Simulated scan of single mutants.
Amino acid sequence: MNPLLEAEQAVLGAVLLDPDQLRQLGWLTPEHFHRPVHQALFAAMRKLHADGHPASTAEDSVPLSWVTDTVAEAGQHVRGLTASHAHTLISACPRPGHAPVYGRMVLEGAIHRSVTAHAIRLHQDARADALQGEVEGALRGADVLRDVLIDLARRWGAEPRPVAPGVPPAPGPVTSRPSWARRVPGEERILLGVLAERPRSMDEVVGWLRPDDFADLAHGQLYRCLVALHHRGEPIDRITLLWEAQRRGLLADGTLSSDQLAAVCGDVGPGSAEWLGEQVMRSSVTRTAATSARAIRTLAENEALAPGQLINHALHALDPLDEVRTRWQTANGRPAPTPPAPSPNEPPPAQVHAARARSTPRALSPPVPRPGSAPSPAAVRPPSRGRS
């Protein structure tokens, strides 16, 4: 027997035996039941009780009409419901006084189902947006999922706040790249070629485009090399880019090859770095939304996860999408949403600003030669050699 099914039967049987239990189940709704017949029965009980059925004021024994009227009312919405089914529910309830506990079991199952359904919908929205070259559907689906999580947290009695799971959810089965994502690396390669050939165009994208936005790992690492050279104010061409890739170990570990880099630098045509960057960014939004949706679905399908943990872990899984959304809005000239006030456990804003400043291009200051000596090669370098 399914434990959730037994919990649904038990809470319905408890109310059939003691209609006054409905006063303790005001937070439970018919939609929280999995089976349609159980939804109809609970809705009928709430309606009859609200209408002042004689059973709701009975002090001694519950009249038989409470059971028959409940079945009759529910029978108007589902087929095949008989009085024998009601008696089966009554026999399935061990203790009518435990109805609130049974109800919380039903709510727990509803939370898992609801989060699963909305995660699937978010994944479908992200896939549809990727096919159409849009992002609004995925972002709207993420907002709906977040609102659902906050509402479920309120019903469960937990504080909705993002919490990272102690053990990350197991990844889903490895599949080949979907057809709707196969055109993205081509746009990434063209963008990298434009940036390598026209280094000044880095200013158009460096403020909001990140290496993780690239679908191809090698392309993301190559963009990281471009950003590092740009931030240090060093010349950018095929040779300096190859040298930076070697310094980062990308040639040794096989992430990049000199032939790949030469092909990227040679694939240059007319195009705007800003426009190409927006295409990469758009793909990053839908890809991140799909990744968040898969992670949340994996969490929701773990029946051992308590509802409060599920909700908070799911909110945490949406954080990467929020970060990508903010940069997408910056790329399109839209005002970014006002950030929430930092919690006591978060680092102070000054510390966060200092950390982010490492990704902001710095103006180069002219070297100051020592009196009576020629400047050394180290003196003409920018003061920092840190990597982005």
Rank of each mutant, 00 (worst) to 15 (best):
P100Q: 04
L226I: 04
H353W: 11
R282T: 15
Q221E: 15
E6M: 14
P347A: 12
A263C: 06
A379E: 14
A295I: 00
V227R: 15
D237L: 14
R247N: 13
A306P: 02
A126C: 10
D151K: 00
A378Y: 12
V352F: 07
R297T: 03
H85E: 02
L22I: 12
P30I: 01
G308Q: 06
R297S: 09
D267M: 13
A293G: 03
D319V: 15
A142L: 01
I311T: 01
R35I: 02
M202Y: 05
Q21F: 10
S257W: 03
L261W: 07
P211N: 07
L276Q: 09
P320T: 08
P36H: 01
L217Q: 14
G13K: 12
A306M: 10
A273R: 04
D69R: 00
S201C: 12
P199K: 04
L191N: 07
V380Y: 11
A357G: 03
P162T: 02
E197K: 09
Q329W: 08
T330S: 05
P162N: 03
A295G: 02
G249N: 08
A138R: 01
L318F: 14
L12R: 13
V148D: 14
E31F: 02
L315Q: 05
E204Q: 05
P307T: 05
R183G: 08
H231G: 10
M1S: 14
R287E: 11
A138I: 00
R232P: 11
A170N: 07
S359L: 11
A153P: 04
D253Q: 07
V71F: 08
R113G: 12
L261D: 05
Q132T: 14
F33E: 03
Q246H: 14
A314N: 05
L226D: 05
V167P: 09
G172L: 04
S176E: 10
A153H: 04
S65I: 00
G269L: 13
Q76V: 09
G137T: 01
R232W: 10
A374G: 06
W156Q: 10
H230M: 06
R46K: 13
V144Y: 03
L28A: 09
V380Q: 13
A341S: 08
Q329C: 02
D18C: 14
S376W: 13
T298P: 04
V15S: 10
H34F: 08
R334S: 02
L241F: 09
A158D: 09
K47G: 05
G266D: 13
A43T: 00
T70F: 07
G266P: 08
P54T: 03
V206W: 01
S258D: 14
T240M: 13
